[in-house]
Simulated scan of single mutants.
Amino acid sequence: MKRTWAMMTVLAMAASLCACGKGGNGKVPATAQQPTKAAEKAESPEGGAEGAAAAKEDVIVLKYAAAEVPGTPENDANLNFIKTIEEKSNGKIKVEYYHSSQLGNDKQVVVAALGGSLDIVKSSAGNLMDYSDALAFADLPGLFKNQKHLRAVFQDEVVRKEISDDIFGDIGMVPVNFDVDGGAARALFYNRKGGAAKLPGDMKGVKMRTTGSEIEMALFSQWGASSVPMNFNELYLALQQGTVDGLYGHPIGTYGNKLCEVTKYCTVIDMSYIASVQLMSKGCIEKLGGEGSELYEIVMEAGKELELYKDKLIEEKLGSIMEQIQADGVEVYVPGSQEIGQWRATGQAVWEDYVGEGKMVPQKIVDEVVAIGEGF
């Protein structure tokens, strides 16, 4: 349990981040929303003070921060999530959306939400590990057979409740939805002398950007690569300047964030996925009238709809993404069966230190995931 650590972090950092919830940061929300009927009444001469009071009382403003950038399927899906909430609430909820990490990286927006200045935020499993290990299992290399397996895990009501309860117990926030970022396994994108890496040992000495996930860093160590903790929004410049040599990311996100412009090689190892979660703060729950209220359920239902809608948009994009990456000048290498076996062996070697009783990932959740995977 990391609740104590999370609360200490909030006390230390919230003061510096709370400005993001007060409009004093110069950031402009990504979506300009249409006024609700109450707001229109307030603006009309006939509305007067009564209309202004109604508008203030009726409209709940939620601040929503995420890392997705315009032009990607993930961002398009987030916009649909916002539209669904506003339409189903009949204008009672207005969402201010801050994309592209405008208000900070994953860890910073989680802290801001814990401090009360943001309402809905997104964090990858790796970044959430500073505050909760509930999603640590999703970082295990080789655990999932494919994207559909991971999605099925998140849609399983028993497992979903276990994860949600663990996150709430650790940081007092409620998961709105779970994502399989990029809809495909992570691949290695990097620069190195000697060409594309065919075997794990070829990555020796390569400086890899990491979220700080212990499991991810242990995997890089198995390859002989070094880990450099870094915010994602700093990565383009870092790759350009050689501060880091590579990243372990999903193809759509790597391409969408233009990181193919500053990497020469890609090795497809189909071993790990990037899971993430959108979280609702305690303050947001209270704004909506508490758990189980009509507005709370509207947001939660929109979150579940977002999962499948986002998967659909990503699947449509995946068919051509590797061609686009190669067109950008990246040399793509797909290991053969014997080579991929060596990559998978490095992933399995990580499990011993992190899976089991009293360790980061309970054996119980691994067994549940494996059982769900029998259908794939």
Rank of each mutant, 00 (worst) to 15 (best):
L239R: 06
M203T: 00
N233Q: 05
A184G: 03
W223F: 15
M208T: 08
A184V: 05
F178Q: 01
P200W: 02
N191E: 09
V180Y: 06
D181E: 15
N191L: 10
S213R: 08
M217N: 15
A197Y: 10
G205S: 01
A225Y: 01
N177M: 12
Q241T: 15
A187D: 13
L239Y: 07
A225L: 11
I215A: 11
L199G: 01
P229A: 07
S221E: 14
A197Q: 02
Q240G: 12
A218G: 00
Q222P: 01
N233V: 11
A196C: 12
R209Q: 13
G183R: 06
E216A: 11
G224L: 09
L188T: 00
V176S: 05
L199W: 06
G182D: 08
L188F: 15
N191W: 12
T211P: 07
A184R: 03
F220S: 02
K193I: 11
A184H: 04
M217S: 13
S227F: 08
E234G: 14
L239M: 05
A197L: 06
I215Q: 04
L219G: 01
G183S: 10
G183P: 06
I215M: 02
S221Y: 05
V176H: 03
G201M: 08
A225H: 07
A225K: 03
W223K: 01
N191K: 13
V176N: 02
S213I: 01
V180H: 01
G201D: 14
A184M: 02
Q240K: 15
M217T: 07
L219P: 09
A187H: 12
G182C: 11
M230S: 11
K204T: 15
M203A: 09
T210S: 15
R186A: 10
K193T: 14
A196G: 04
T210E: 02
R209T: 09
Q240S: 13
L219V: 12
N177W: 07
M208A: 13
G195M: 12
Q241I: 13
L235Q: 14
S226F: 02
N191T: 06
M203Q: 03
Y236P: 03
F232K: 05
A187T: 08
A218D: 09
V206H: 03
S227W: 08
V180F: 04
G182T: 08
L199V: 09
M230T: 14
M208C: 09
V206N: 00
Y236A: 14
K193A: 15
W223P: 00
N191Q: 11
V180E: 03
V228M: 06
A184Q: 05
E216K: 01
Q241M: 10
P200D: 08
M217C: 09
F220C: 00
K198R: 15
A218C: 04
A238Y: 05
L235S: 10
E234M: 13
Y236H: 15
R192C: 04
W223V: 01
L235P: 00
N231F: 08
A196M: 06
Y236N: 07
G194H: 07
N233S: 14
D181N: 15
S226Q: 11
Q222V: 07
T211N: 09
N191D: 06
G194T: 09
